[in-house]
Write a protein that binds this DNA or RNA. Structure first.
Length: 212
DNA sequence: CAATAGATCATCT
DNA sequence: GATGATCTATTGC
């Protein structure tokens, strides 16, 4: 039994998004599939904040629905949804219960279970790219709607904070794939990681502004 | 390198 | 009935 990391999910959404860079995501592969029970894990190197109340790109913006119910629950819960009929996206809920907001996990650097990830992504995918991109990391780690509502402190989907004292060179920039409020500087990356997701068209240019 | 098309479906209007 | 917090392959410069 490990110590729960409540402090990791506390505070403003932007702070959580920054704090999650360098943290470790551990996933225990579900029963009934290859590698069941094994742990696959990665180091978080890219996140995006979706702010409470004021953010038109946040799924919570128009109030709770059946799909987005978990967004309004306690912080540190998994919000998983299907996008484009084909891929899942994994979020960490933030803010107190009743307020909908989250941090999207966009990319990780593979740590454990590389063979299991490659089995799900394909034999020719380079190791550094196995967990690069929100849809890809969910596929590699067998994360889908069954994970919606999971607690990141216990269970089969756990986030452990960055080791104390480790400094990650974090940068911020515009968000990716949005039609509204894409230019808000709410995307955070570990600038030195080879696993950051490729830049994609989201209109305009992708300004990278140095943060701390 | 940049732009575009197509795959595919739960959710919401 | 339209729409995505995506990804890959393909085309064109």
């Amino acid at each position: 039994m490990k110590k729960p990391h409540n402090e990791l999910f506390a505070g403003p959404t932007i702070d959580v998004a920054r704090r999650l860079i360098g943290a470790t995501l551990n996933r225990r592969l579900p029963k009934g599939e290859p590698g069941a029970g094994q742990i696959v894990s990665g180091r978080i190197v890219e996140t995006e904040a979706y702010l409470p109340l004021v953010d038109p790109a946040c799924h919570a913006y128009r109030g709770p629905t059946k799909r987005t119910a978990t967004l309004f629950g306690r912080p540190g819960t998994a919000y998983v949804y299907l996008i484009y009929g084909m891929y899942y996206c994994l979020n960490v809920t933030t803010e107190p219960p009743g307020i909908g907001a989250a941090v999207l996990i966009r990319a990780l650097e593979p740590l454990r279970g590389i063979e299991e990830m490659r089995r799900r992504r394909g034999p020719h995918v380079p190791t550094a790219a196995l967990l690069s991109g929100p849809g890809n990391l969910c596929r590699a780690m067998s994360i889908d709607r069954r994970c919606d509502g999971a607690d990141f402190r216990n269970g089969n989907l756990i986030i452990e904070p960055c080791v104390a004292g480790v400094r990650v060179a974090t940068q911020s920039g515009r968000r990716i794939g949005l039609n509204v409020a894409a230019d808000w500087p709410l995307r955070f990356v570990d600038a030195h990681s080879p696993s950051i997701s490729p830049f994609r068209r989201s209109r305009g240019r992708s300004a990278q502004v140095a943060a701390k």
